[in-house]
Design a protein around this nucleic acid. Structure first.
Lengths: 302, 302
DNA sequence: CATCTGATG
DNA sequence: CATCAGATG
């Protein structure tokens, strides 16, 4: 896909003057010199962000993040709005992107995903082809020349784990879907997978284990099963020992200030894409949601 | 009742240093030299305010109005909270008042009234003694030595006038209730009566007539009937020709800035209290609700 | 402690 | 264009 001029090379892409992003006053440097193991510069940048209500995020100026990050593709989860309801400030911030929006057939203001790409995809599909799972606007798939881009907002198991059974059914169907895609082209999956895989992936593993949605054995094993089918958790591959790296913090109790968080947002890659992997960055400084954006840098092509 | 030191006399009660009130930055002078026709200074001040959600009003610092106005009695409508839910900042602002709270048996966060008095009433009753009308926390009656204080939040006829029939039943029962009280002691009724009596009492009489709740012939005639039973609209008695004097402005379309309003809040007095009437002031500068407070000044005693 | 909706005004 | 509740996370 992209014939991007090595935007990751600081020589060619001088640091921008940084504006306030997403309601934070910290100045962020979104440039990167990341390379593959074989030494190739990244040339494709993908961002993923659970915005927890796009209209709310825009009110907090969160959309300012996108032009500053300047990804080739950005995927959003929990948009909680249809394409009709997208604030005009957001539309302006993603001018030049091809946008694809998916929201529940019934429940307004619930879940919902979006995928925006500078390059027009070959084909975009919605859902995973299983009626039972395709009424909440949770998965968008965009086919590009050399990979499938999949973004997902995986169902939360719910207070009291009332929806844990359903989550099991989902995990199974979703893994099957990804396996099927992976047979045709490599897959880049991103989004809020609503699971912290291992104890290292959340601040308080003991008190949450098998109690809080996102850290039950079932959900964790579901994720392990996915990886066993030929995928990699790109962040953990790059940073196997890194602790206190989270993508979500509850709004309750000032958890973010204390970094009491969870790593729920992932880039999961087909094994055979690993040689292209340059970096996976967690933008924990970007405000505007209870999740922060994550960014994947790939060196596509030979 | 009150042996208040003539607070309305500027000689004895110098102007206070005024703080910001109810989120407005305008400095308000809440002193008054008003007298009865016979020349008696006021010695009883009663305020009435539809706060449109007390918790919201407090967030906007609206409660700062009360100590600045310093009424002997303050009546609130549309508190939308029970006594349990009253914000502590509000409780602090009305320290020294005896407080009486009334809210719906069913619908939480709906309607609700409160009556606060520096002097302890002889007796306080809730509702109008008609079961059909006494489940929404709309009327509080406080008996004092020489009058009944009644505060009311009269039912809105609703979008599409769906509740206009019920409103008719209410108006009839409420008038009967006031008549009954009036036989024992004179009555001071205050509150959001949810009617603009005459064309002079709203900005756009033509477009609202028999369309918008609060300006149907039925509601207007209901108010006329009440007055015919021996009561007076104190504001209109004092200012029969005054135009553009409103107590409510819709939040929609910036109506308050344009003074596109309605006079829905009243002090209605038993005819025989008219010799005691000193003034009725509309505090249109006080922010914190879509209604503004109104204030009654009486010279009680002989 | 946030986001929504829907009822209500 | 506000308030509130309740669902959801």
């Amino acid at each position: 896909m992209p014939k991007r001029k090595a935007a990751g090379d600081a020589k060619e892409s001088p640091k921008k003057t940084k504006a306030e992003v997403g309601g934070t006053s910290s100045k962020s440097d979104f440039s990167s010199n990341a390379k593959t193991k074989s030494g190739k510069h990244w040339n494709l940048k993908i961002a993923s962000w659970n915005v927890d209500g796009l209209r709310g995020t825009v009110k907090k100026n969160g959309h300012a993040y996108i032009p500053q990050e300047d990804p080739d593709i950005i995927c959003l989860q929990e948009t909680k709005c249809t394409d009709k309801d997208v604030p005009k400030e957001f539309t302006a911030a993603v001018e030049g992107y091809h946008g694809y929006w998916y929201s529940p057939t019934e429940k307004k203001g619930y879940a919902g995903t979006a995928l925006l790409s500078k390059t027009k995809p070959i084909k975009v599909t919605y859902g995973i082809g299983v009626e039972e799972h395709d009424d909440e606007g949770r998965v968008i798939t965009a086919e590009f020349d050399d990979f499938y881009m999949v973004t997902a907002y995986v169902p939360n198991a719910g207070r009291g784990l009332v929806r844990l059974d359903y989550r099991g059914t989902w995990d199974e169907a979703f893994t099957a879907y990804l396996k099927k895609l992976d047979k045709k082209k490599p897959v880049v999956l991103c989004g809020d997978l609503n699971v912290a895989h291992n104890e290292i992936d959340l601040k308080n593993p003991k008190s949450n284990k098998n109690k809080t949605p996102g850290f039950t054995d079932q959900e964790r094993e579901g994720f392990t099963t996915l990886l066993d089918e030929g995928f990699k958790d790109s962040y953990r591959e790059l940073y196997p020992e890194e602790t206190d790296c989270y993508t979500f913090w509850s709004y309750m109790g000032g958890a973010r200030a204390k970094n009491v968080g969870w790593r729920l947002d992932y880039f999961v890659l087909s094994d055979r894409l690993m040689p292209q992997l340059c970096d996976n960055v967690i933008r924990s400084e970007v405000m505007g949601s209870d999740h922060c954006p994550i960014v994947l840098l790939l060196a596509m092509g030979k």
